[in-house]
């Protein structure tokens, strides 16, 4: 399997008044056209890893890596113009909450068309048609109606489907999904996931699925990286998860209640300082 994305010793630092905060400290992995899950608590650096690949780290942060390459393109030395061309066209990202991640004063259709027009020379009619097709592809029943709606007029699940449509319409090869379902109602989470699952499979995309939910990730991905305090503490195939060696991974697994099992005392996630070293 040829590597779509190579990450070697990625570091993201935020200089603040009280010193430098290292959000990501030497993360390395490679990704083919497969599904990779990145799991960790909030503040573990999982989201910043995804954003560093996108090139969306805040301006004041420093990103360094021995190697950060997408399809042979060295991302860190790439000019900003090239990175913009990659974003949306070849690498895309889905954000957590459609309530905030869709522009509230722009209709959904316009936001999808915008992605398309940014990356391809398409006429208005064709752009509209492709946006409608994309809306249909994320299983929106009445694409023509939803096209003209504003984000506040649709439910969270539909908003997230619109978000997926907006990000996939230009046909990217790599998708980074940053907690794509954690802001949704439990009932629609699975629907959105299955849509995502289907599209990723059909289009043969690589997927980085960032989440705090280990079981969700393990059921959805081929491989899982477990992050703690900016580092990868364990890399494991999803099927092997029950044999996880690292105590932190085991801790995360044990947090999940099992019906019928004794819950006393409630397990508390153990955080040993030496894991962060």
């Amino acid at each position: 399997m040829s590597a779509l994305l190579t990450v070697e010793d990625l570091r993201v630092r935020f200089p603040t008044r009280t010193g430098v905060v290292e959000a990501v400290r030497g993360v390395s992995f490679t990704l083919g056209r497969e599904r990779l899950g990145i799991v960790g608590e909030s503040g573990s650096g999982k989201s910043q890893t995804g954003r560093a690949v996108m090139g969306l780290t805040p301006a004041h942060a420093q990103v360094t890596a021995k190697r950060l390459a997408f399809d042979g393109i060295d991302l860190l030395s790439a000019p900003p113009k090239l990175r913009r061309d990659l974003r949306g066209k070849r690498i895309a990202m889905i954000l957590q909450d459609p309530k905030y991640s869709l522009n509230p004063v722009m209709s959904i259709g316009k936001q999808i068309v915008e992605t398309l027009q940014r990356h391809e020379k398409v006429g208005r009619a064709e752009a509209r048609k492709r946006a409608l097709d994309m809306l249909a592809a994320v299983q929106i029943r009445d694409p023509a109606r939803v096209f003209d709606l504003y984000p506040h007029e649709v439910s969270g699940g539909m908003g997230q489907r619109a978000m997926i449509a907006m990000m996939l319409v230009a046909g990217p090869e790599l998708l980074i999904a940053d907690e794509p379902t954690s802001a949704l109602d439990v009932t629609v989470q699975l629907e959105v996931l299955s849509i995502l699952d289907k599209l990723v499979a059909e289009r043969g995309m690589g997927l980085i699925f960032v989440s705090h939910d280990l079981r969700l990730v393990s059921s959805f991905c081929d491989r899982v990286l477990v992050m703690y305090a900016g580092r990868i503490v364990e890399e494991i195939a999803a099927s092997e998860l029950s044999n996880a060696k690292h105590p932190y991974t085991q801790g995360l697994l044990n947090c999940m209640p099992v019906i019928g099992a004794d819950r006393h005392p409630l397990p508390v996630l153990d955080r040993k300082p030496e894991w962060a070293l």
Partner: peptide, 21 residues
Amino acid sequence: QEYIVAARAKGLSEARIIWAH
């Protein structure tokens, strides 16, 4: 706001993000 991040993720230019979004 997050929708600015999303607009960047779409590959829009800074000018378009600032003025149109």
